[in-house]
Every structure is written in C-alpha cells, then in structure tokens.
Design a protein around this nucleic acid. Structure first.
Length: 599
RNA sequence: GGGGGCGUAGCUCAAUUGGUUUAGAGCGCUGCCCUGUCACGGCAGAGGUUACGGGUUCGAGCCCCGCCGCUCCCGCCA
C-alpha cells in the first residue's frame, strides 16, 4: 500500500506516528525556506511540511518543482501544529505531517482550469468541464454528488431487498416498438436487415416477470430515448423500476413512500412525513394549471366562468359560450412587471393558441388595464374579492377551453414565481419537499391531427374498474389507474396498475387505439400470449433516479449527478461520441450510409 | 424542426454610441526573492487569428449575413 491513512484521517491522537499519505497536490505554498503542500484525496486534505533543515537538498527541490494536481506519496511524522497556525477550515487542521520522504507518482501538466478553488471552478464553462470531466469530478462538489448517488443506490437496494423484492436484470437489446419515444436502434451482424432497439423502459419485461411469478421486482434500469435533451433529460438515464403482483394502487403508494422516506433519511438525514397528499389530475389543473404542481407557494388559479358568462366583454363571454372557461391568477407584488416580461408571458400564452394575455396592474390605488373598462361593477367586485386584490398586484387572465386555459396560466404562474423569486418577493425554503400523488389521469387523449385516441400514459394502464363501461361510449371520461409522484413541481416518477386480462388488453390495442391486429401480433403478440397462461393482477412504477439525485443534491441539471453526461446535442465532449465507423463494419452489418461523413 | 442567451489570454470577466497609440484586470503560468503559510506574500515577465467565414464602413470585439460549439425553452419525451 502506498498509504497508511487517507487525507481526512489524521487528528491530534495520531501525533508522533509515522504515516504515509498519497494523493494529489491540492496547493503548494513555497515560502522559500519552508514549503507547505496540501495533499488531497477523495476524503479530504492534509497539510504536509517540507523543512530544508532536515531534508536532502534534492528532495526539497523536487518538492519545490511540484505543481497542482501532481500525484505524490509522502511519508513523515504527524505532529501538532505550532500555536497560532491551526487551520479551523479543514478537519485535519490541528495537525500536519513533517515530511521525511517524497515519491512523485506522476506529474501533472498545467491544468485547463483550476480545481482547487471551489468558487472559481463552479463558474467554469460547462463545455470545458465536460471535456475534462475527470478534472471536474475531482472537485469536492462533484465528488459529493457521486458519493450521494452511490449511497442512495445502495439504500434503495437495501430497502427493496428488505421489502422482499428481487433485483432482476432485463435486456438492453430489445426490439423496436414504435409507439412512444423515439428509439435508438442497433443493427447486428448475425441477423442481416434486422435491428435491436434499446428499451425506453423495461416495461414489457417487468410485466412478463409478473406472469413469471416473480411477484416483486425491482431494478436500477438504464433506459434510452432518442429525443431532444433538457436539463432534466438525457438520452440514457436510470430509473428505479418496480413491479408487484396482487396489489392495488395503495400498495404502490406505501412502498414508494417507504422508499423515499429511507432515501431522504440516508441522503439528507431528513424525516419525510407520510402519507403524501393526493390530488386528482382535474384538481391539479384547476388549481395549478399543471399535472405536476409545485405547491410550495400559492398563486393558485381562480375560476371566473360564472361571473363572466353574461359579460359585455366578448373575449370572455365568447370563450365561455364556446364551452370554455375564464381563469385568473394573482401574482402578488408583480405590478412592477416590465414590458418585456409582459411580452414574454404573452408569447407563452400565444404558444398555447391564445390571442393575447389580459392583465390588470393594481398601482397607485388604480386598476391599470386595457380591458377593465369593459367590466361591470359586479364583475370587478368578484375579481377583487376572489383574488384578494391589493396594491402592487398583477392579475393575469386566460379564457379558453378548460385544459388550455389552465395550462396557459400554469406556465405563467411558474414564470411569475421565478420573477418574484429573483426580486426576493417570494422565498422558497430550499429544505422544503412537497411530495404529492397525482391520480385519476384520463386514460386516453385524442389526437386531432391523426383523428385517433392514444394512451395518456401507455397502453398497458388499466382503466378504473367502474369506468370500463365508458370505454366505447365516452373514452374521454375513462380514468386510468395511473399515478405520478411529484415533488416541488418535478415529476419524480409514475406508474399504474396494469391490464392483466388478455381480452381487455386486446380491446385497448385494437378497438380503442386502432392498431391493426397484425401489428398488435407482431409487436405485442408475446405479451398477449403470456397473458393466456395465468397472469396475476399487477402494477408498478418507475422513479427517475437521476432527477431524484439532482433534487437531493440541490442542482437543477441532472448532468451534475451523472458521471459522464451528454451535451444538449447528445454528444460526449470527452470521448467525442457518437463517432463514425469503418466501411468494413458497415459491410459486416449489411448497412449502407446515405449521408456523407461530417468532417 | 422553432425561439432566446452565450462565445475576447489557460480560466473568470472588462473594453462608453462603431473611433485613445500596444484589446485590459484578477487568477493561473514562467523567472527571481521569501522559514509558519493555508486565497501565502513581494518583484519582474510571457501569454490574444476577439469561435470560424464573409460583408458594411475611412475605421468592427462591437453592426449585418452565414456557420460551428455550449446552454435554456417550445415542439418532442407511449
């Protein structure tokens, strides 16, 4: 071993011992006559002292020639630091190692960016950090994220094991099932013209595992989606994938609440209160305008459909006459909004098909608004009362079909919250975690362009039993046994009770989703076949592992909790992937390219 | 596919409306000095195709067009 202790280990109790430390040169302070080198490893850092009075000249000069991030091993005697030189900022600050020998294990070139100064390093361009990821990961913040991720993964496995779950690996070479997310496809030499696809989730395998009698399955599963990236979306990601037999929705809630309790305790030493609140899809949209509400602040949507049904203001009464609604939010204290911010909100509204965005600013005791002159006294009273309007408030309206009106204001609510936060008028406790279950999603949504129904979640979701008769009469009204777990406005995971009867599943595929029978057989035949031989009722859920770690680490981007993430274009700046292949490889795969290689 | 932001020294950033000679500063780097520093300090120095390619102009880091890269959002993510 090249070390006897790690760099966060030595304390006054070790004084007098001869030790060996190995690690990186964190910083070097050369005072001419004496040199201090902080040796850093994964655990921390320790000051070592090079005193020329009892060191060979060559060794002292070697120490003087070291620069940041050289890898060294030093041996010497632990001693108490002299009075007045204790460094309270580091855990090993009461002692130091008086060096007797030095071995340079490897030299380091001048670094592309500094890693020793946390403040400077945190500001470095992410492009550079990704290119030199191994340096970036040496930063304590990044090392902490990796460590926390590992601890949570292990806590998850321990918890699931205690609860009687089996960890089962499923194939990452699957086949294409074009419904849903775009897939990465994988050609292979042994089957010319055929392709594997990387799974967007192990959904079908885990259901088959239930048919196989596993009863309780989990996996930290890698999933792949060839879709555009976001701060919270990578083309490959990890989910905690779970499936159970002989259960109802409540059983899933119990397992997940228990798991999250354990994870939060392990990672943050926080006791999460359970059970989590539940809110229906309908109520979430009505109150927050989104199916993953951030309930850490108010600014809830208020409904004025009845108040404006007979209004002389045709924009509102007209929308209502068309079967729509009128909704409003009060962004308290945002009357000072800039023209640019109003425009940004209007653009958001227009993106949802609205013609504009009506507003009222309450300033100087007056309602400043282009539309308020159309309102009757009764309408004004209703607004003032229901929205608790006061000096400095900004009221924003949406008048449209219910879902659209809600979603417009939902987006604007979040935008206003960001502006208010930036102005210090809205403070959200960073240690607050508002968990909730969103339930009773519509099973189906209608695609106007394609003129057909599609699954809101996925086609394996079971309808709520009492809604099954509505499947053919009024599909829109059918609720799915689907549930999302949401924290602070982030969709942490979702799942459902599945269909386990072959005939119901076949009806969904063929009659409701209108997938041609031969295609159903080609894509899902093996599943329908499996359901013939005793499929137990079952259900499950998947939690976004990367998102969960990001929340625990307090970072907005999952790139900060993935060791080697991709850029927004899906490339890896360190390895320069994806890359081209040799013509021979293509020949072996029976493939021919129609695009030239980019240079 | 669409929209926004960014790109100046190794790093982080300045550079007035397009006009001050040699595009500056801090950190880092190189050399010298320094025996209790820990953001060590002091002195001196090197380091630039302003991402790249065009254009407008007497004059472009700054304006225009294109292009590349990073990033945020919309679409997309059963």
């Amino acid at each position: 071993m090249k070390r006897t202790h790690h760099c966060n280990e030595l304390r006054p109790a070790h004084v007098g011992q001869t030790v060996t430390l190995s690690g990186w040169v964190h910083s070097r302070r050369d005072l001419g006559g004496v040199i201090f080198i902080d040796v850093r490893d994964r655990e921390g850092r320790t000051q070592t002292v090079f005193d020329p009075s009892d060191l060979p000249k060559a060794l002292f000069e070697q120490a003087a020639g070291l620069r940041s991030e050289c890898v060294i091993s030093v041996a010497g005697k632990v001693r108490q630091r002299p009075d007045g030189t204790i460094n309270p900022k580091i855990a090993t600050g009461e002692v130091e190692v008086l060096v007797q020998s030095l071995e340079v294990l490897n030299y380091a070139d001048v670094l592309p960016f500094q890693v020793d100064d946390p403040e400077a390093a945190a500001k470095v361009n992410e492009e550079l950090r990704l290119q030199y990821r191994y340096l970036d990961l040496r930063r304590p913040e990044m090392a902490r994220n990796l460590r926390l991720r590992s601890k949570v993964a292990i806590a998850t496995r321990a918890f699931m094991d205690e609860q009687g779950f089996l960890e089962v690996e499923t194939p990452t070479l699957f086949k294409s099932t074009p419904e849903g997310a775009r897939e990465f496809i994988v050609p292979c030499r042994t089957n010319p013209g055929l392709f594997y696809a990387l799974p967007q989730s192990p959904q079908q395998f885990k259901q088959i595992l239930m048919v196989a009698g596993v009863e309780k399955y989990f996996q930290l599963a890698r999933c792949y989606r060839d879709e555009d990236l976001r701060a919270d979306r990578q083309p490959e990601f990890t989910q905690i994938d779970i499936e159970m037999s002989f259960i109802e929705r409540q059983d899933i809630y119990d397992v997940i609440e228990g798991l999250l309790k354990r994870v939060w305790k392990t990672a943050l030493n926080v006791e999460l209160p359970t059970s989590f609140k539940r809110i229906t899809f309908q109520e979430a949209l009505d109150r927050y305008g989104i199916d993953k509400p951030d309930t850490r602040f108010g600014m809830e949507l208020a409904d004025f459909t009845e108040e404006f049904r007979a209004s002389t203001f045709k924009v509102f009464s007209g929308a209502i006459a068309n079967g729509g609604v009128v909704k409003a939010i009060n962004a308290k204290g945002l009357a000072c909004v800039t023209q640019g911010q109003i425009e940004a909100m209007t653009e958001t509204a227009k993106g949802f098909g609205a013609k504009g965005l009506a507003y009222i600013k309450v300033e100087g005791g007056e309602w400043k608004s282009p539309i308020v002159k159309f309102f009757s006294a009764a309408e004004k009273d209703a607004l003032a009362k229901k929205l608790a309007m006061a000096e400095g408030d900004l009221i924003l309206f949406a008048a449209d079909q219910w879902l659209n009106a809600c979603e417009i204001l939902g987006k604007i609510r979040l935008y206003c919250a960001d502006v208010l936060k930036a102005q210090g008028k809205l403070v959200v406790d960073p240690n607050r975690f508002d968990f909730l279950w969103v339930v009773d999603f519509p099973l189906l949504s209608f695609d106007k362009e394609m003129n057909r129904w599609y699954s809101s979640h996925h086609p394996f979701t079971a309808p709520v039993a009492e809604d099954i008769p509505l499947l053919k009469q009024d599909p829109k009204k059918v609720r799915g046994q689907h549930y999302d777990v949401v924290v602070n406005g982030v969709e942490l995971g979702g799942g459902s009770i599945r269909i386990h009867q072959r005939d119901v599943q076949k009806t969904i595929f063929e009659d409701i989703l209108a997938i041609p029978p031969d295609m159903v057989t080609a894509r899902f035949g093996y599943m329908l076949e499996a359901f013939r031989y005793g499929a137990p009722p079952h259900g499950g859920i998947a939690l976004g592992f990367d998102r969960m770690i990001a929340i625990l680490c307090g970072t907005p981007s999952i790139r900060d909790v993935i060791a080697f993430p991709k850029t927004a274009k899906g490339t890896c700046l360190m390895t320069d992937s994806p890359g081209g292949v040799e013509p021979k490889q293509l020949r072996d795969l029976h493939l021919e390219l129609k695009v030239g290689k980019k240079e």
